[in-house]
Design a protein around this nucleic acid. Sequence first.
DNA 1: GTGACTCAAAAGTCGTACTTTTAATTCCCG
DNA 2: CGGGAATTAAAAGTACGACTTTTGAGTCAC
Lengths: 233, 233
Amino acid sequence: MTTPAQGLHSHVLATLGLAITAGEYPPGTVLRTDELAQRFDVSRTVVREVVRVLESMHLVESRRRVGVTVLPTASWNVYDPQVIRWRLAGADRPRQLRSLTVLRSAVEPVAAGLAALNATPEQCRELTEQALGMVATSRGRRLEEYLVHDIAFHRVVLVASGNEMFARLGDVVAEVLAGRTHHHVMFEDPDPAAVTLHVQVAEAVRERDAARAEELTRQIAVGALQELDVLAP
Amino acid sequence: MTTPAQGLHSHVLATLGLAITAGEYPPGTVLRTDELAQRFDVSRTVVREVVRVLESMHLVESRRRVGVTVLPTASWNVYDPQVIRWRLAGADRPRQLRSLTVLRSAVEPVAAGLAALNATPEQCRELTEQALGMVATSRGRRLEEYLVHDIAFHRVVLVASGNEMFARLGDVVAEVLAGRTHHHVMFEDPDPAAVTLHVQVAEAVRERDAARAEELTRQIAVGALQELDVLAP
DNA sequence: GTGACTCAAAAGTCGTACTTTTAATTCCCG
DNA sequence: CGGGAATTAAAAGTACGACTTTTGAGTCAC
């Protein structure tokens, strides 16, 4: 565990970040830098750099004469991809998966609508290609290959929307899709209805039919939420 | 400028972060830690800590034998409240304001729908109160007071949705609302139609009418986008 | 009991010395 | 003349120790 470490900093950061997001240190817990330095067998310099990063993610707060205090979940930067990855890897994967899926259900339909208005011909082509790839790999336990197309598809939609905030959710969506595939929060083969919907979204975008792209994507989202309800209690 | 600085770290971070997000260093620009230390008249230790934080925001990348390279906008953590604040304060406020408003238009309607299902009686009360506050301050150049209620209103909706990802957008929405008020990307008095819509959203939530709450919030969002189109070219 | 004073713990800052990685240059051989 | 291997040096990474600053907490006088 705790990553092989190419760089002391990364190693300590990953270990501490994971531990905190996993709730191993309840909010209010106080850590001391030299204690941490000793524990990880690194210099205080390294620990301080890690603490500064953790602080920028609002996972901890550092105060003189007090120490490094672990902050409550409510103040965490939950949009930080790093934080998301830690949480998906740790104890509250279910909770995280659910809240991210709800977020997707809000954002992706709107993004698809915008993509229908803004997508370049190249993006349309790419979208169609990925949708076909999904069809091709949708049967026969080829989940890994399917996942690649699925991720690529959603990423293109988000980028094609032309909104940078949406585009940056590509990584988050990728994490969610990968997470649910790898942790079996998904049926053995993808839902055929979902596959069809993806193909239709690609069509709608190609035909510049924003309303249809939005509505179809909304249906995909609803499906994803239902699947989550069924497979993750 | 450059903040009074309570702490060297904060000062250097704020200055550098602002400069980078303002585009003062084009992507690919290489900085050296010693040079920065000299420029800010602080030790390399401080600079290194700052660089680590900037690195965690994906504003820069640090490589041995190369230096600290400024990364292109596309890789920035645009959801980091700190980054958002810097960008709103700097050169690309218009772009940032627009993309954030689009994000709001996707998220808030869904959040309102969920709020209608999940809001506590206390949250309903709070919502109504803020809506009434908006009505009371909607005329006679009382924009500052209006803003307070507006922010509080949207924050309650997001929190009441019960989704932590939505809840954490409260700060972002606050920044957007404050930004457009303070930089006159808004009419002199709030749009009366918008005020009414807020009151109706509060009603809909109180009556657990999710579909209506969602639709009304969508109308608020559409209004905000139109206002932006009119006032920010 | 309250307020001013003192103390000490912990983070913050600094300077320097040393290690490691790696881009770039050199140099040798085919 | 070209390409690949060895060399070099530049910059980040790490460590350590000394010192400063802030501030919670305990103390003492009133």
